[in-house]
């Protein structure tokens, strides 16, 4: 079996396409991130604390990175977390997911797995039912593989 250059690119298309575009637009992505935060908070500057973002320091592969958020809140009918926005600053598009909670959630906690194009900051912003907003940020180092990359 012969193996030409085109096929090499084809085989790694997933990772390569994702990674190749990221550095070029990273500046724009940061602006996008700021815009997404503002849109979510209604223009307010979110405060640090109350929300905790849990991410690995080093992700073995950027395609599947576990992330978790938890927000301190009694989660009662008149005092609860409405939603949490997850952003990845260095991805081609920073939007990752938005969790919506209710008093029936019992606790404002959620976990999922996400894609990160490269080493970057992951951001979580919480919005409470009284309109106040909180933020946490964690850097995740995304490693590249062995000789195959």
């Amino acid at each position: 079996m012969t193996f030409n250059r085109r096929q090499v690119f084809g085989l790694t298309a997933g990772a390569a396409a994702f990674l190749a575009v990221a550095p070029r637009i990273s500046f724009a992505a940061t602006e996008d991130t700021e815009a997404a935060i503002k849109a979510f908070t209604g223009g307010a500057e979110p405060v640090e604390g109350t929300i905790t973002l849990d991410t690995p320091e080093i992700a073995e592969n950027g395609n599947t990175v576990p992330v978790g958020v938890s927000v301190e809140s009694p989660m009662t009918a008149d005092n609860y977390v409405e939603s949490v926005l997850i952003l990845a600053e260095g991805n081609p598009s920073p939007a990752v997911a938005t969790f919506h909670f209710t008093a029936l959630s019992g606790a404002a906690e959620a976990k999922t797995r996400i894609r990160l194009a490269k080493t970057q900051n992951v951001i979580a912003v919480a919005k409470m039912n009284d309109g106040s907003t909180f933020i946490d940020r964690k850097e995740v180092k995304v490693t590249i593989g062995g000789c195959g990359g």
């Binding site: 991805n91 598009s93 894609r115």
Partner: peptide
Amino acid sequence: QLVFECDMDPAVS
């Protein structure tokens, strides 16, 4: 009654 909802973007694995 709604308990939990998530809007997902392409960055979810």
